[in-house]
């Protein structure tokens, strides 16, 4: 019977990994602050990541599911969030004349997208669609490591590999040909706190930010999880004891 469990457990462990494709890429692995059962977000890194997103990525990539008010998780207060939001314009309306109009964004609004729709995005990017980044860390296997690897693996193609027009060589991308041009070269922006701005550093900050956009509830989830699992372990031990007490007179008469 134990064999059954072990086999099933092994299958379960193997299952999702088996389901993923692409075996020719090697991922760079990093220790992320949010990994593990006690993981948490690094606010400073996330703030830098937000800056990197705004200055580098937001020209092509939307962040559809993040509202400005969510940025409180990064450590900004209400006034700071209002300022960040006010830098953007969002569509509102119709007004009394029946027209749609643009107004400054409020904290309750979401990040506006760079393109009106997917077709417009494709038209502006050689037919390739720059995906929305809100969930990208969960939408790729080994999300955080994959994103970090992708951003830091733009290389010269080996030997005389043919690179089609509009494509770029990336060692971490399945098939190695990616439509996104290299976004980071190092020192692409200046961080307000003067932190390192190498390709690796900016990439790591972006990943810290994107891990949060994909799952803002991560910290709450893990903290609650510790309490719940501890409670259930205690309950299991207690109920085991109670069971032994109740069964004592029956067990006594068994071999």
């Amino acid at each position: 019977m134990k064999k059954l469990f072990l086999c099933l457990a092994a299958l379960m462990m193997a299952g999702p990994a088996l389901a993923a494709g692409g075996g020719d890429v090697v991922l760079k692995q990093k220790d992320w602050s949010f990994s593990g059962p006690f993981g948490s977000f690094d606010q400073a890194a996330m703030q830098r990541g937000l800056q990197a997103y705004v200055e580098v990525c937001s020209g092509c990539h939307s962040l559809d599911y993040v509202s400005f008010r969510n940025l409180a998780d990064l450590g900004y207060n209400e006034a700071e969030i209002k300022v960040i939001a006010a830098q953007y314009e969002v569509e509102d309306g119709p007004n009394d004349d029946g027209d749609m109009f643009m107004r400054a964004a409020l904290p309750a609004d979401r990040f506006p997208a760079p393109y009106a729709n997917q077709n417009a995005a494709r038209a502006a990017n050689n037919g390739a669609y720059p995906p929305d980044l809100s969930l990208i860390a969960k939408a790729r296997a080994n999300g955080p490591d994959y994103l970090y690897s992708l951003l830091t693996s733009y290389e010269e193609a080996p030997g005389d590999t043919e690179i089609p027009e509009g494509m770029y060589y990336n060692a971490a991308y399945s098939g190695h040909m990616i439509a996104m041009p290299q976004p980071l070269y190092g020192d692409d922006l200046t961080y307000a706190d003067g932190a390192e701005s190498s390709v690796e550093a900016i990439s790591a900050d972006l990943v810290a930010f994107l891990a949060w956009t994909a799952e803002p509830a991560l910290e709450k989830r893990k903290r609650t999880g510790v309490a719940v699992v501890a409670f259930l372990l205690i309950l299991s031990v207690m109920s085991f004891g109670a069971m032994r007490f109740i069964w004592a007179d029956v067990k006594k008469s068994k071999v």
Binding site: L232, L235, M238, S239, A242, F245, I246, A248
Partner: peptide, 17 residues
């Protein structure tokens, strides 16, 4: 009575959960 206590405590804890 010790057995009753642990049984009652277990079910009570379950109810809290």
């Amino acid at each position: 009575s010790r057995r009753d206590f642990i049984v009652v405590a277990t079910y009570a804890m379950g109810a809290v959960g």
